Simulated scan of single mutants.
Amino acid sequence: MSEIDPKLIRRINELAAKAKTSELSPAEEQERQELRQAYLQAFRDGFRTQIEDLRIYNQAGQEVTPEKVKKVQRDKNLRDD
């Protein structure tokens, strides 16, 4: 799983802290919005990867992974069946 760039998070936090103490310039507002979008996209990509790699088993030990997920796993060559 890929991690979200620490520099991205640091800059988002810097802008958030500045916004609490003073007003952001229009350029900083735009930057903050772009950084938030980049963060959300990275988060969604990482979460999607986790879900796509997941296999679900019931208490009897039988795999019950949904077919939709199995298809994605097959398409990415993550499954042999």
Rank of each mutant, 00 (worst) to 15 (best):
S25G: 11
K20W: 02
A17N: 04
D45S: 08
L24G: 00
Q30D: 06
E23W: 11
S22W: 09
T49Y: 09
S22C: 14
A17S: 07
Q41E: 15
L35P: 07
K20T: 08
S25C: 04
E31T: 04
R32C: 01
Q37C: 03
L35H: 09
E23I: 13
R36G: 14
Q50I: 04
R48L: 12
Q30V: 06
A38Y: 01
Q50W: 02
D45H: 12
A17H: 00
A38K: 08
T49H: 11
G46S: 10
L40N: 09
R32S: 14
Q37L: 11
S22F: 09
A16H: 01
Q37W: 03
S22D: 15
Q33H: 01
A27W: 00
Y39R: 07
R44L: 14
F43D: 07
Q50Y: 06
D45P: 09
E28Y: 04
E23D: 11
A19H: 08
P26Q: 13
A27S: 13
Q33D: 05
S22M: 12
A16T: 11
L40K: 03
A38W: 01
E23G: 11
G46H: 06
E34P: 01
Q50M: 07
A27L: 07
Q41F: 13
R32D: 02
A38D: 06
A17D: 07
K20M: 06
K18E: 12
E29Y: 08
A17T: 15
D45V: 04
E23R: 08
A19Y: 04
S22G: 14
A16N: 00
F43G: 01
L35S: 00
A38H: 10
A19D: 13
A19N: 09
E31M: 01
F43K: 09
F43R: 02
L24I: 15
T49N: 05
Y39K: 04
R32W: 03
A42T: 04
L35R: 10
A42P: 12
L35A: 06
K18H: 00
T21A: 08
K20R: 08
T49I: 10
Y39F: 15
F43T: 07
R44V: 13
E28R: 00
A42F: 05
R44D: 08
E29R: 04
T21F: 07
A38S: 08
R44I: 14
R48F: 07
K18V: 06
P26A: 11
A16W: 00
E28D: 12
S22Q: 15
T21M: 05
R36N: 10
Q30Y: 12
D45I: 04
R32P: 10
L24K: 02
F47R: 00
K20E: 12
K20I: 03
T49P: 00
T21K: 08
A16Q: 01
D45A: 15
A17V: 12
Q41T: 15
A17K: 13
K18T: 08
Q50E: 06
E31Y: 11
A42Q: 03
S25E: 09
Q41M: 08
G46Y: 03
A38L: 12
Q33T: 07
E23M: 12
Y39L: 11
R48Q: 05
A17G: 09
D45K: 15
